[in-house]
């Protein structure tokens, strides 16, 4: 474990917590009377969260952590896997099933056909992988899928008029975690002999590059202290 990877994992955990906080805020609005302006905004406007991206992430974790009970790495590793699995599936459940939260989900805008991402990633994983075993192919699939999982969310943000802070922070943290992982891979390459994982490195690089324009608009909105807006 190195500082880059720990920072990456904590950033990833933060992104999940921000999303859970956002869902909690929407839920707690229901109990209050309407005049609370925040509630009005949250319940009237779409939450800006893409269910498609959440479902893809749940699939990423499900296919990546198949070895959670067979290969014990460390207590930290197991606990983090359980957190990511539990949170991603419960977020999908909330947006799909919860009577209040699902009202804030705008399915007319979240139209990305994520099936078109799953199939090519699966085919690619069958062709390019480190070892042709069931677990390894699904693990590779999860890497390819995670690289593109943010696409429905980024497209939804382009369509969302006013992106609220929590959603913007969620996407930023999600992009930043993989950028930190790239530093971790560089560090491990130079400190651990024979540490070479091209598939992981290239997928991680592609994933981070997909956030490039979001990072640009995110930082310029911070600098100019204006609302985050992605060009359509």
């Amino acid at each position: 474990m190195n500082i880059f990877r720990l920072a990456g994992d904590m950033t990833h955990l933060m992104s999940v917590l921000v999303l859970l906080l956002k869902i909690h805020t929407i839920k707690s609005c229901a109990g209050k009377s309407y005049p609370c302006s925040l509630c009005f905004i949250l319940l009237e406007s779409s939450s800006g969260i893409s269910l498609k991206t959440q479902e893809l992430y749940a699939l990423v974790f499900a296919t990546r952590y198949l070895d959670i009970f067979t290969d014990f790495i460390s207590v930290y590793n197991t606990i983090m896997k359980l957190i990511f699995l539990g949170s991603s599936f419960s977020i999908v459940w909330y947006i799909r099933r919860h009577k209040i939260v699902r009202r804030s989900y705008d399915k007319d805008q979240d139209t990305f056909r994520h099936f078109f991402l799953v199939l090519p990633c699966l085919l690619l994983a069958l062709i390019i992988n480190e070892k042709f075993t069931f677990k390894e192919v699904l693990w590779t699939f999860s890497l390819y899928l995670e690289a593109v999982a943010i696409l429905p969310q980024l497209i939804l943000l382009q369509r969302t008029r006013n992106i609220d802070n929590l959603t913007g922070q969620y996407v930023f943290l999600l992009g930043a975690y993989r950028a930190l992982y790239i530093l971790n891979w560089i560090y491990r390459y130079f400190t651990e002999p024979h540490y070479v994982h091209w598939i992981t490195w290239i997928s991680g690089l592609v994933q981070t590059l997909l956030y490039a324009d979001f990072f640009y608009y995110y930082f310029s909105s911070l600098k100019n202290n204006v609302k985050l807006k992605l060009p359509a």
Binding site: R5, D9, H12, R64, D67, D71, I73, N77, M80, K81, F84, E130, K131, E136, W139, Y181, N184, T200
Partner: peptide
């Protein structure tokens, strides 16, 4: 048998 490449990262 080469050690299964246990993936130690999340």
């Amino acid at each position: 048998k080469e050690k299964e490449t246990a993936h130690d990262e999340l």
